[in-house]
Each structure stands twice: as structure tokens, then as C-alpha cells.
């Protein structure tokens, strides 16, 4: 087991966002976190790596409680890609090298440069390495931040809506890359998503959030029209086209 979340809760002074969240994932699992805007998807991801401090419950990464680890140690185990990226005047290589930050004492070592190179290669970004981030397209920028998260050599990836600003081609490409990396490296991924079709096609596990609580969790069997309808308040049909499951609103 890579990640285990027990009775997690998060509350803002004015309202409660998450309550009684329990789930776990294993090596190679791609978990899609689904729910309407404001359901608590992003908050859940941030509570896992303590970008936000949960007010109750515990998160365990490889049986170590995240709350008891230093921020640097958490960064060595959990890679995180935020929903919005800042437009930074930094080269692609520098941006990916930043993923080595938790390991760097004073200066980047040869090993850090090698791992950066590997991460660039994995995301096919070699030819962009000296381009500035703010000169890249949305899809390319998204790949850079995923490469940065991979340069952290994490056991778990947290990705907050990694496809929301991408075109159809880039959406598929990015999710395929995530899937491939999770499989090959035998790490876990928790991905918040809005696109149900991408989720149902690529994810192994699903977590449906409704009003800050888990409505349903499990494998493909939880992605029933009834569950989706209850969470999103619209009627849908789940069909298969050429063996690919799709969710169609009706």
C-alpha cells in the first residue's frame, strides 16, 4: 500500500470542506477523484501532502504518517502538480531541475542533472530544454510541471486537474503519459478530474466526492449512471464504443 487516508477532515473558518475521508491506493494505481466544482477535490489533494493542514484524521505514505514527516521528506515522496501554473521566466530545464530541490543541499549534483535529463526524456521535452516556460503552449507547460514532479522521484503523484486547460489531443497525451509512468515506475497517482470520459477510460480506481464526503469509491463498478447522476445531478448513460467506456449526458 502506497497511500492510506484515514478519517481526513478539513474545515475553513466559515464552512467544512472535507469530512470522514477514508481510502487507500496501491502501487501502480491511478485513482481519479471526481465531483462537481467545490466538492473538495483540490482540497483533498492539498491535504494529502500538507500544502493545507487537515484539521482531523491522518494520511500515511508507505506506512509513515505524513504529518510527522518534514516538508522536505514529504517532497521526496509526493510529487504535486497544482491546478494553475504561474507564468515564470525560467527555462524548461531549470523548471524540471527544481523538482530536485528536496535533494539538493547547496548545488545540484551530477545525479540531479541525470534525473532531470531522464524526466525531460520521459515527457519528450528534450528539444524544449532551453526554451522559456512562458513561451510554451499550455500543453507543453503541463508536461513540464509533470516532469518536475517526476524529477522528485516520488512514490505518489498528486495531479490537480492536469487536463483542464488542454485541447483534446493534449488531454489524451498527458493522461496517457501519466498512466504509463504510474505503470512503469510502479508509483501511485491521485488525479482530480472533470472529464468523466478520460477518467473512466484511464483510471483504475474512482473516488466520487459529494459535499465534501465520499459518495462512492472503488473500481469501474462504481461508475454507474445512478452514482454519476447523484453526484453531478444530470442523467447520463455509460456506453462502450470500440471497447472504450464513455459517459454520455442524456
Amino acid at each position: 500500500m502506497i497511500l492510506s487516508v484515514n478519517e481526513l477532515a478539513f474545515t475553513y473558518p466559515s464552512h467544512s470542506v472535507l469530512q470522514k475521508i477514508n481510502f487507500s491506493i496501491c502501487k501502480g494505481d491511478f485513482l481519479a477523484v471526481l465531483g462537481v466544482n467545490g466538492a473538495g477535490k483540490s482540497t483533498l489533494l492539498k491535504c494529502i501532502n500538507r500544502v493545507l493542514k487537515p484539521c482531523a484524521g491522518a494520511v500515511f505514505i508507505q506506512n509513515d504518517e505524513v504529518g510527522k514527516l518534514s516538508q522536505r521528506e514529504i517532497a521526496k515522496r509526493i510529487g504535486y502538480v497544482a491546478q494553475r501554473q504561474e507564468s515564470v521566466c525560467m527555462t524548461v530545464y531549470d523548471a524540471v531541475l527544481l523538482g530536485r530541490k528536496p535533494y539538493i543541499q547547496w548545488e545540484a549534483s551530477k545525479k540531479d542533472l541525470e534525473i532531470t535529463h531522464k524526466a525531460l526524456k520521459m515527457l519528450e521535452l528534450e528539444e524544449y530544454s532551453l526554451r522559456y516556460l512562458n513561451e510554451l503552449s499550455g500543453g507543453e507547460q503541463q508536461k513540464v510541471v509533470i516532469a518536475r514532479a517526476l524529477a522528485q522521484e516520488p512514490n505518489l503523484l498528486l495531479l490537480d486537474e492536469p487536463t483542464s486547460s488542454l485541447d483534446l489531443k493534449n488531454q489524451l497525451e498527458v493522461v496517457k503519459i501519466i498512466k504509463r509512468v504510474v505503470r512503469n515506475q510502479q508509483i501511485g497517482a491521485v488525479v482530480s478530474m472533470h472529464d468523466l470520459n478520460l477518467a473512466i477510460r484511464f483510471a483504475d480506481k474512482f473516488l466520487l466526492l459529494k459535499n465534501g464526503e465520499i459518495f462512492a469509491a472503488g473500481g469501474l463498478e462504481v461508475m454507474t449512471p445512478e452514482n454519476i447522476e447523484s453526484v453531478y445531478s444530470i442523467s447520463v448513460k455509460v456506453k462502450e464504443i470500440d471497447g472504450i467506456p464513455v459517459v454520455v449526458p442524456v
Binding site: N49, Q71, A75, Y80, A82, M90, D94, A95, K101
Partner: peptide, 20 residues
């Protein structure tokens, strides 16, 4: 200097990279 580079990428990203 590495912390400042991480801060340029946004507060949440910096935190996730181990920056206090």
C-alpha cells in the same frame, strides 16, 4: 536561492517542493 526559485513557481508548488 533554490527556495526563491521554487517560490517563483507559486506558493503551493513551493510548499510541495519542501519549502517552508
Amino acid at each position: 536561492r533554490w527556495d526563491y526559485n521554487a517560490l517563483d513557481s507559486g506558493e503551493e508548488t513551493a510548499k510541495s517542493l519542501g519549502v517552508n
